[in-house]
Structure formats: C-alpha cells, structure tokens
Amino acid sequence: MLNVEGIHSYYGKAHILNGLSFEVRRGEVVALLGRNGAGKSTTMKSVMQLVRPRTGRVMFQDDDLVGQPAYRVAKSGIGYVPEDRRIFTDLTVMENLEVGRQPKRKDAPDWTIEQLFEIFPNLAERRGNRGKQMSGGEQQMLTIARTLMGNPALLLLDEPSEGIAPVIVEQMAETILKLKAEGLTVMISEQNLHFARSVADRAIIIEGGEKKFDGSFAELEAHPEIRDAYLSV
C-alpha cells in the first residue's frame, strides 16, 4: 500500500534521512522504532510531504507523493497524527473534529462522530470544551479522532504513547487494535518497545536515518544485539 523508496530528507543543510526504504502492506500495523533523533518523525513528515524528500519516491497506491502538497496527500487517504498533537486549542472538540472531516472513501472505514465518541468516551463528555482545556491524554485522543474524521486508509501515528499515563497507554493499544480490526492500515512510531509489540505485526528499526532492521517481533527477540544497538530500553 505504501512504498517508500530510497528517500533522502534534509532540514536545511542537515541530512536526516539517508536513502530510507520500506513498505507498509494493506491491513497491517507496522511499528517504526528508533532512538531519540533517529528520524522517525522525519520519516512520517516525509511521507506527508511536510518535509520534502530531495530524492527518492513515496509510492502510495501507485501514486508518487513526492512534491505534492500535504493536503493532497491527506486527500489521497493518509491520516497523520503528529507527535506534538497540534490540536487547535481555541476550537472546541466538535470544531477540531470538523476541521478533520473529509468525504468518505471506498477503500477505507467510514467514521461518524458517534462512532468516534464510542471509541473515545472522554471526548463525548467534553465535546463543547476548548482544546486548551483538555488534559494531555484527552488531547492525544482528540488528535487521533480528528484524523480519523478524514476517513484515512493509512494512519500514521507519531509516538501515540508519549507523555500519557500507563493506563491510558493500555487503552491506546486497545484502540489501535480496534482500528486495525476495522480495516485500517497503521504505522506507528514508538520508543516504547513493549507498547509497540502489543499492537504491531512488524517492526522497522531506523538509526541515523537508515534502516537497520525490518522483520517480526519474534525475529527481533532472537537478535537481542540489534535491540541493544539501536533501541534504548
């Protein structure tokens, strides 16, 4: 479904992604792992075209995304949840969801506000509240719900477990599995190996903008040296 082929991404003159290639297949949940500064967020931004790869291709359903504006990428069916959440703090919960709303798509599950409120009951209670009045965990739920309003086929979740309480992290894992059951393809970036293993089918490990490992969690367990070299556990 998503084929990233040898992308090189830069911030100004800083070379961050160094010929990165990987694939995400329809219906799977893939975890993108790596230390702080490994380039996980940059990878997701490069898919979204918030950062333009200078070379390489980002193929999504037979369409090269490189060079397209971010809104086109979103419209083609990729939902993006940034690590810093970026909810609209002056808008209410309902208005935040409205910004994300897009027409339904053939190849992707179709979400209504009611369904999202079932998955995220906290949001239902706070629907009239402004974004800035929400707790960190609630904001995280709101960003995910907001992105789901766009009925994406592929969801990019950047560190969903970051900075939220352990109980909520468990809820988050359940939620991601629910989304998968609905037919969504998901890529999450994570540092929390335990959390990644509980939701993902496959792990991709990057370091310094290069891929170091791509395989199942069982394989990863069989090679503890990889884990020790590239992940801070």
């Binding site: 979204m48 971010a70 809104y71 990428v73 979103a74 970026r86 703090t89 002056d90 910004v99 766009g150």
Partner: peptide, 12 residues
C-alpha cells in the same frame, strides 16, 4: 492557529 496542520488534514 496552525496552517500546516490544517493542510495535513486535507484542506487546501
């Protein structure tokens, strides 16, 4: 508040 995010949500 955040034009880039609005774009990333599919709004031109």
């Amino acid at each position: 508040q955040d034009r880039e995010m609005v774009g990333a949500l599919g709004v031109n």
